Simulated assay, not measured.
Amino acid sequence: MNATMAFKKFAIIVVTMTALAAFNAQAQPADSSVPVAAASSAKAARKADHMLEKAVRKALGKDKAVDVTNLTVRARNGVVTLLGSVPEQGQVDAAAQAAQGEAGVLSVNNALTVKAVAH
C-alpha cells in the first residue's frame, strides 16, 4: 500500500469517527447533578478529613503525655495516620490512644518514631 492510499484510509477513518462522535454527542442540561454531586461529595469528604485532622491535633495538644512538636496528623475517610517523631516510646502509645479516642476516628495508623531530643 502506498502513502496516498494509506492517507486516504486514515482520512476516511477520521471523518467517520468525527461523524460518529457528533452523532452520539448529547447536550448536558445546565442542572446536571452527576458531576456536581461528585464534586460536592469529594469536597465534603475533604472537609470532613480536615475537620478530623484538626480534632485529633487538638486532642493530642491537650494530652500532656505527648510532645506534638514533630508530629503530623493526616486523615482520610476516618483513618488517621500519625507521622513524625516523639522523644519517648510511651508517647507513641499515648498519641495513638488520644487519636483513637476522638469521635469519627475509625482506625489509627501509628507511624511515629522515637527520636531523642538533642540538648
Rank of each mutant, 00 (worst) to 15 (best):
T4G: 10
M5P: 01
M5L: 15
F7P: 00
K8P: 00
I12A: 15
I12N: 07
V15F: 08
V15D: 04
T16K: 01
M17D: 02
M17K: 01
T18V: 14
T18H: 05
A19Q: 08
L20P: 05
L20I: 14
L20K: 07
A21L: 14
A21R: 11
F23S: 10
Q26F: 08
Q26A: 15
A27M: 09
A30D: 13
S33K: 05
S33F: 07
P35E: 12
V36C: 06
V36M: 11
A38W: 08
A42Y: 10
A42C: 04
K43G: 12
K43W: 10
A44M: 09
R46T: 13
A55Q: 09
R57Y: 09
R57S: 14
K58Y: 07
A59P: 04
A59R: 05
L60G: 00
L60I: 02
G61R: 09
G61Q: 09
K64Q: 11
A65P: 04
A65W: 09
V66C: 11
V66F: 08
T69N: 07
N70W: 09
L71E: 05
L71V: 14
A75V: 06
R76Y: 13
N77K: 13
V79R: 06
G84R: 08
S85R: 09
Q89Y: 11
G90P: 02
V92K: 11
V92W: 12
D93S: 12
D93A: 09
A94F: 04
Q97R: 13
Q100K: 10
G101Q: 02
E102M: 05
E102A: 06
A103C: 06
V105G: 00
V105K: 01
L106W: 00
V108F: 12
N110L: 01
L112A: 04
L112E: 03
T113H: 03
V117D: 14
A118H: 12
A118K: 15
H119P: 13
